[in-house]
Amino acid sequence: MRGLVKGLGITLKNMTKPSVTHRYPDVPLPMPDRFRGIQYFDPDLCIVCNQCVRICPTDCITLTGKKHPDPEKKGKVIDTYDINFEICILCDLCTEVCPTEAIVMTNNYELAVYSRDDLFKNMEWLHQNDENVRKENNLNKPNLAPGGNKK
């Protein structure tokens, strides 16, 4: 009997303590800076090196580059950049290998959509998604992770 009564005492004591739950839908839930939300893409930084396409474990990034418009500059400019959010697992490997930080994670985690075709995020959408972009990315991180980024 003693154990039961002790248990009851503990639950009564816990009843007086304030609730520890988040009021999420009413109160927005702030995420730490490193949180891996949906990506933000900056087209002019991208040098079409295909590193992110190669590292992506689920092959959900597809991009096409085109010749640089003005002739004297060489290299390529990004034309279309799509991430298929049906199979993206937000593993943050693409931002890790991107040499120029063209693709960076943001802290937005509300990814639910009403129809499946909204899950194919194109370059414009990824470019507009620029609130609470993650600040501590590869270049300003003291110890660099392996992969493509040069100093």
Binding site: P32, R34, I89, N143
Partner: peptide, 26 residues
């Protein structure tokens, strides 16, 4: 929430790399 601060995810951390770890402790 400790893990969330450290590596950006609550369940699927993808934190360790061959040869070390990806993020330093904030």
């Amino acid at each position: 929430s400790l893990f969330n601060e450290l590596c950006g995810a609550r369940l699927t951390y993808n934190y360790m790399r061959v040869g070390g770890v990806k993020w330093d402790a904030p």
